[in-house]
């Protein structure tokens, strides 16, 4: 039963990784697979006037729209790995959404230094420093001490198109 589970995971991982050539090549050699996706958050208004938010495939995307970038990781190998860090540079055209997890580890200097947003500062062109804002974030990352064989998870961050 355990074997069957592992098999399913690795099959799914390689199938998902196939469209990206380098990712597929890496996945073959790596026990860890990494699959990214993006969804758009759209507010759907029901006929009775109530609103609900749905995650949909992005279409008709304009400035101000909200996107959820997701990365699924899965460990298809036999041995636990340690110091597992997933780093995601933010595309220049988006900014981190204000409701992003305050505990999310971020960088506002291109990935050189890290911390929660509330602890970071940026210096303006006049040399004065100010508290970092969501729009200043250049990278986000997630750090796990170890990932056990068969473990998998999903990492997401919300962004707004500038």
């Amino acid at each position: 039963m355990k074997l069957f589970t592992k098999l399913t995971i690795s099959l799914a991982a390689s199938a998902l990784a196939l469209p990206g050539m380098s990712a597929a090549a890496q996945a073959a050699a790596s026990p860890i697979s990494l699959v990214g996706d993006v969804k758009a958050e759209k507010v759907i208004t029901a006929p009775d006037g109530t609103e609900r938010t749905e995650l949909v495939a992005p279409s008709a995307i304009i400035p101000g729209d909200r996107l959820i970038f997701g990365t699924d990781y899965a460990h298809g190998g036999e041995e636990a790995v340690s110091n597992f860090v997933v780093t995601n540079p933010l595309p220049a055209a988006v900014r981190l959404a204000p409701d992003a997890d305050p505990a999310l580890e971020v960088s506002v200097d291109g990935g050189k230094s890290w911390g929660v947003l509330a602890a970071l500062t940026v210096s303006g062109s006049d040399g004065a420093t100010r508290p970092a804002a969501h729009a200043d974030v250049t990278h986000v990352r997630w750090v796990l001490e170890s990932v056990a064989p068969g473990a998998k998870g999903r990492l997401t961050y919300p962004a707004i198109i500038r």
């Binding site: 990784a17 790596s30 860890i32 697979s33 993006v38 790995v81 860090v85 595309p91």
Partner: peptide
């Protein structure tokens, strides 16, 4: 808008790095 995540880890034989696939979204006209 293109997004790629990078994972680094240590599998006992040393540090390794892999990239996710790149997802892209085109900004439409407002």
């Amino acid at each position: 808008i293109e997004n790629t995540a990078v994972a680094s880890y240590d599998d006992g034989a040393g540090p390794r790095t892999i990239n996710s696939n790149t997802v892209s979204v085109r900004v439409d006209e407002l």
